[in-house]
């Protein structure tokens, strides 16, 4: 190792040595991330390759990789997107309440609680979903099927165990809620007082002030936090594995027992008993998941950058 990279060189009065060391370290760290990412992608590609090129009838299910992965991808997207649709607005509302409406003492308590919830392992949420939430949804699901059955989401027939897509979505929503809330709340706390005062001075009510000064300012944080939550929901394994009773159908019917699985849950379930080409097939589905999360992040970044001029970052 060259001398200039040892920690003692930093302390020496030689001009700019510290700068060079730090630049080197941070460049190295940046490169390391790229290398790891590329390594993961390469591993997935290489391991998935046999399945991608195998004759369709040899792949588990007998109809090729694409048709094997498709229902899983569908289930993954369905559960994650609906979970996000529930969690994101709720998270923004909670963050606004904690930052702007709750009395000081309550706000602090709620803040701790949210951070704590974000740290609960997913298996706990899974167990809760299985033992508490699933049975509890059977009744309401029946009501939904009877009264809103014309909506494809609630077509029924209602699952008797309650281990439905609906429950998986609710569990995922609860799981990603704290992390989204925590990030969004932190962003709302950063809103400069000056901007809040500008809105108040124009005669804004509190809600109008939030709409004028706070929400636009927190917009990119809301998107970023949502993507974080979506990423977590897309990749969530244990909770979904425990909660969801799988039949492999491709349907948007959330309350029946004919549920598609998700990629991550499917891998967790199948992997221990798989050998040979079945393993390659699972890895191929993992590759798809990897690509999807990647695409989601890129999309989020594009959305944020498109209005970065107006972000208030300057």
């Amino acid at each position: 190792m060259p001398l200039s990279e040892t920690p003692s060189a930093v302390a020496r009065p030689r001009p700019r040595a510290g700068d060079r060391v730090f630049a080197g370290l941070s460049t190295g760290a940046g490169l390391l991330i790229l290398v790891v990412l590329a390594g993961v992608a390469a591993f997935l590609l290489v391991e998935a390759w046999p399945a991608l090129t195998a004759p369709p009838e040899e792949v588990p299910g007998g109809r090729g990789v694409a048709l094997y992965v498709w229902p899983l991808l569908f289930g993954t997207a369905l559960s994650a997107v609906f979970a996000l649709l529930i969690a994101a607005p709720l998270a923004v509302t909670i963050a606004l309440f904690v930052t702007y409406y709750a009395p000081r003492a309550l706000a602090q308590g709620l803040g701790y609680l949210i951070d704590l919830l974000a740290a609960v392992p997913s298996i706990i949420y899974g167990l809760w979903g299985f033992t508490v939430l699933a049975p509890a949804t059977v009744g309401p699901s029946g009501w939904l099927a009877d009264n809103l059955g014309f909506v494809p989401l609630f077509a029924g027939p209602v699952s008797a165990t309650g281990r439905t897509m609906l429950v998986a979505i609710l569990v995922l929503a609860v799981m990603i809620l704290p992390i989204i809330t925590a990030v969004v709340r932190e962003a709302f706390r950063q809103v400069p007082r000056l901007h809040e005062e500008a809105a108040h001075a124009l005669g804004a009510t509190r809600w109008e002030m939030l709409r004028m000064a706070v929400l636009p300012f927190g917009r990119s944080a809301v998107i970023g936090a949502s993507m974080l939550g979506l990423g977590r929901a897309l990749g969530e394994t244990m909770a979904v594995t425990i909660v969801l009773s799988v039949s492999g159908g491709v349907t948007v019917n959330l309350i029946s027992s004919g549920n598609p699985s998700t990629i991550a849950a499917d891998i967790a379930l199948q992997f221990p008993e798989s050998t040979g080409l079945a393993v390659n097939t699972l890895i191929a589905s993992g590759l798809v998941l990897f690509a999807v999360t990647f695409a989601v992040n890129m999309a989020a970044r594009t959305v944020i950058n498109r209005r970065s001029e107006f972000s208030g970052a300057n």
């Binding site: 901007h195 108040h200 001075a201 005669g203 804004a204 300012f217 972000s311 208030g312």
Partner: peptide, 22 residues
Amino acid sequence: PVDIRSEIGMVFQRPNPFPTMS
């Protein structure tokens, strides 16, 4: 107070245009 504030303009020590608006 909201009515009062809307009838009275205020300019602050540091310029504070809304950065997220044009």
